[in-house]
Amino acid sequence: MHANVETAPKSRTTFMKLLIRYRTLVILIVLMTVFSLLRPVFIDPKNLLAILKNMSYVLVVGLGMTFIITLGGLDLSVGSIAAVVGVTFAMLVRGGTMAPIPALLIVLVLSMLLGFFNGFVSVKGKIEPFLVTLATMNIYRGLALTLTKGKPVPIVIPHFADIFGNGRLFGVIPTPVIISLVIFAISWFVYTQTKFGFFVRSIGGNQEASRVAGIEISKVKLAAYTMSGVYAFISGLILAALMNSGLPDAGRDLALDAISGVILGGTALLGGVGTMWGTLGGCLIIASLNNGMSLLGAQYHVQILVKGLVIIFAVLMDNAFKSRQR
């Protein structure tokens, strides 16, 4: 047994290290290669753009979730917030009651409040974020359903669907893709280049150390959950624009898909470690899986089954590598 560890050639260990470091990318490339071989249409640029478009609203929420999970937290309520965003916006602008811009601002503030509420209850009430957001996931969904009596509210203002949903920049790139990539760039910057990102990583890595370093842990957490609300707002707008209506049922799978993407991207559920690039890769894996399996004719129930298996596989691989690192 020891022979393997001790006499392994240097090059092999550096290879393993690279594999560990870029495991998300490796999975993604393998997956895309397999799908391309089975169904060449998979790598058609049109199809790739479709993958990016279908990924956009999950990626946006996943980027916010990366902050939350790095903090050692969890936000299950983002899908419900996205639904609230869609229906309240649709209701505000219905029949020309309100101009689109003020309506957007009101909905933005509302989504921030919903996110803030998650953080506030969790921080001040000293309750696990998992429990808090499990509860608010239902509360916010209930809110969306109650407001609309369970029925979709059509959005009839011009340009909305073009800007957030089905429009294309230069007639080629779907606008949701642009939006999600801009949000990605901003998130990467905040995560790696600002004090806020630094504090998020340090609190997740060692909360006590951060406390004795004088960092205001409550403020950072409240800010992160409020931000998660903003990410859900953007995601909710994309969802509403794609459907051209506010659906109280929108985003049912959103939180879990985003969490899966974040985990596949190598962000540790215990907090402290993560990257935005990883989250991008993780969300791409999930979107490619969905798309590829559809091309292969697999139905939804088979798709989620495979998705679950891939997540377990990725986490197992993560653990195996981690124990090898020590």
Partner: peptide
């Protein structure tokens, strides 16, 4: 980590 107040602004 404990000296962030001494650095101005938002950026690292």
């Amino acid at each position: 980590l404990d000296k962030q107040n001494e650095f101005k602004g938002f950026l690292l």
